[in-house]
Design a protein around this nucleic acid. Structure first.
Lengths: 232, 232
DNA sequence: GAATGTCTTTGTCCGGGCGCAAATAAAGGT
DNA sequence: ACCTTTATTTGCGCCCGGACAAAGACATTC
């Protein structure tokens, strides 16, 4: 029973290659090249010409975006089973974001012609990609709503809950977010400052809602967080 | 030459049915049903079961989203040539947003089976839809960055510029935004309050950057706005 | 284990921008 | 023309949350 400890709670990601037979799947993966990234290594930078798209096999990518003044926002974290930089395939543009490994990460990548071939060969892939894009759009719309209408506390609560769902692992007294998350990261994700995040989280720690360490957060009372996120 | 006045500056929207022959296009449009909406009429509400997707032929839809407390954010305006509610086709879910006609609007709509048929019959459609979804994702990421990193003034400037690009028509002394936009609308779009928007715009009016009336805005000095948006 | 670098906490200050109230202006209805 | 409704402006007070400083906690390296 305690083998549960460490089990990932991650909901099965919407896969790009659903609906293929194992044989087809093997072929598709064969067409791609694998790549391994150390933590904190950059995969591509915002503005680089976009040539490949990437499937995360293990690990996690952090997607960030900079404005003209060099201020940063975290667009999202890409986990196992998720595909990113599909823009590269559909348009001859540049990457709109920067991708950095948040932890050691294994990828499979395809260049534009390869992915185009696959999409024509297996139309389901295009449909899956569309479905994934719409899902992400949906999530971002939700976050946009939150940042427009809610205050910092609530947004931080929601972020922790979102991270928990996406990358939570059970530990003795709660659920640990299995991404190295600094206060600054959370601030960049929620559109505030690391100071405010720090204060907010210490407050919650005193109330027993979370336990936090250096770049690590354990949610001990998810229910309280949900309650807080919804009512302020 | 002065016939230019009133000409839309709208950049040609990325179309859902590019790459089809005129005959095929006619067939596709035949498969859909047309619908006409009066201004302020609702097309669907957030939470309604999603059954149709819609192509705007004329007019404009306003997509909004509510949070638990009933606060609203404007996700985007959908103009001629653009398709919305593709989610309806790809997933058996509910509409994630509310759609309301911002002006009198003509639509063509397809239900899930019809659109599914089309996607299978003309694979290019799926690719176009994917491309459009990625484009919208890109735009929303950009706005997310802005709302995370920039202050209210700048965001309002950027919004006006964005509306100008999407729905600008030339008028004698500037470019008129051809959407009925109240201060409240702009506030909901940029994540602030109508008071702040009002103050900001009157300030700009005094500087001669814009001319504004009731639910109407004319940008008279786009360059100044761009400058301001980028440097604060 | 000393030194260095990074992350985090906490205090203080203060200003951008929100909330509210009240006045004004514009459109529409009868 | 009058009344009603809805949009906009403006003044004022206040507070959330940003800016900055300084110190503490934790890792890593040599």
């Amino acid at each position: 029973m305690d083998t549960d400890i460490g089990t990932s709670l991650q909901q099965p990601a919407l896969e790009a290659f659903n609906g293929l037979t194992p044989d087809q799947y093997a072929l598709v993966m064969q067409k791609g090249r694998v790549k391994k990234l150390q933590a904190k290594a950059y995969l591509f930078h915002q503005g680089d010409p976009a040539v490949n798209c990437f499937l995360v096999n293990q690990g996690r990518l952090k997607l960030t975006k900079l404005n003209e003044q060099g201020k940063e926002a975290i667009i999202r974290y890409v986990g196992p089973g998720e595909l990113t930089a599909a823009v590269a395939v559909l348009r001859n543009r540049t990457y709109p974001v920067t991708a950095e490994a948040a932890a050691e990460t294994n990828l499979t990548l395809w260049d534009k012609p390869a992915m185009m071939d696959l999409m024509h060969q297996y139309p389901d892939i295009t449909i899956n990609l569309l479905s994934m894009a719409l899902e992400r759009l949906d999530e971002l719309q939700q976050r946009y709503l939150e940042i427009c209408t809610e205050q910092v506390d609530q947004r931080i609560a929601r972020s922790l809950l979102r991270f928990m769902q996406r990358a939570g692992v059970k530990v003795p007294h709660g659920i640990k977010i299995d991404i190295p998350l600094s206060r600054q990261n959370i601030a960049d994700y929620t559109g505030t400052t690391l100071f405010t995040v720090s204060r907010t989280i210490s407050r919650w720690e005193k109330r027993g809602w979370v336990k936090s360490g250096r770049e690590s957060i354990i949610v001990t009372d998810p229910h309280a967080l949900v309650q807080f996120a919804e009512t302020g």
